[in-house]
Write a protein that binds this DNA or RNA. Sequence first.
RNA 1: CGGGGCGUGGCUCAGUUUGGCUAGAGCGCUUGGUUUGGGACCAAGAGGUCGACAGUUCAAGUCUGUCCGCCCCGACCA
Length: 416
Amino acid sequence: MLWSRDFVPTLKETPQEAECVSHKLMLRAGLVRMLMSGAYSYLPMGLRVLDNIQRIIRQEMNACGASELLLPALQPLELWQKTGRDQDIGEVMFRFNDRRGRKLCLGPTHEEVITDLVKNHISSYKQLPLVLYQIQTKFRDEVRPRFGLVRACEFIMKDAYSFDVDEAGLDKNYQAMYEAYQRIFKRCGLNILITEADSGIMGGKVSHEFMVPAENGEDIVLRCPKCKKAHTAKDPNERICASCQATLEKINCIEVGHIFKLGTKYTASLNGNFLDAKGKLSPIMMGCYGIGVSRLISAIIEQNNDKDGIVWPREVAPYQVIILPLDVGDGRIMSEAFVAYQELQEKGIDVLLDDRDERAGFKFKDADLLGIPVQIIVGREFLEQGSLDLKLRREAKRVKCPSSQIYNETMRLLNG
RNA sequence: CGGGGCGUGGCUCAGUUUGGCUAGAGCGCUUGGUUUGGGACCAAGAGGUCGACAGUUCAAGUCUGUCCGCCCCGACCA
């Protein structure tokens, strides 16, 4: 992509609306813009990151045998009345009537809809286990949206649901998801803490949260420095480890994933039953597995930035390489930049070419702010010595490279 | 919902305390020129219902009231 043809409105100064690091950088790097409190537009750079995160999630979900579908955001309220969560969720759910006066809502989550769907098509143990997932927009009328994408009223979530004949099956799927989540967050460039957590209104007994330590995290994780066991705090003043008696560390975190063993809460109330091998009718065992997809963008930036801007982990970066021709008026520089651009693109690398008529310093600042892993600089040194400068954003160190070696050197840096 | 802060060109802000002439600066934008490896410089321009409404006054960005929006803390949160 040529920068001059793209829509990447970078800002030199931080807009007043932002307070936390990730929010400031998302606005400055032109990833998102706010429409109103809790609702954001994803600009081209932001959408590319979002797509990359989704690609990682899809790969890992598919790899553990889950099948993707897409459920409606628009739902009948009566479905929620059947499970009783209409009351539990309360004001958080957007509710309204359609033109016939029917009571509708926008889905804050999808256990009801998926259970309603599955129960009509699963009647035998022979059809189980089954694991389904979707990546979809959720709506929650938050008391207090904040920190940009961290807590928004409209956001993107991956939610997966497992259906099993018994607890042993559920345990197996739960474990597979637990491991898939570890791989997903690692690929997103995150260091996470996994905690034992409260299931809240989701129901069920066992649940784990995947937490990203971050300064502005809304959740507090308590971790024992001795046994390393962590749990999400219900009471942040609880300060002693139950097994070691050591004083617990308090760590602010952003919750990016939460997995639950639901059991039969939804299948029992919505009649999601199956016949087992002996002809006995039982409710299907369920698990559900969420990832805050849009929130991950914030969490990744919180853990991957420096004074100059974002430092994207390779797999989620909007582009792998940015080429910076430092004088667009010089034919030799521009043609060399385009040669490198085409070669890298032909070899499957996502490249952004900053063809704007700007000065060197301006382009360097924007490139650092954007955080694309590899910068290729075509400037004076190319004219004098025929070499390009390659810089790895994370290390801020430059290496010289003859133009014939540009692909190999780029790959070496990306993989290094 | 309680507490606090803020609202002035696209962005950052000054001006409001103590009402006064045509509402300012920097960045960004347009045009011309000089520049060109870490957010250049000069010159000339474009761009504003000063969040909205009502009120006080000879006169309101500035004072009063109501409302709206945004941010932070708290309560809440899958």
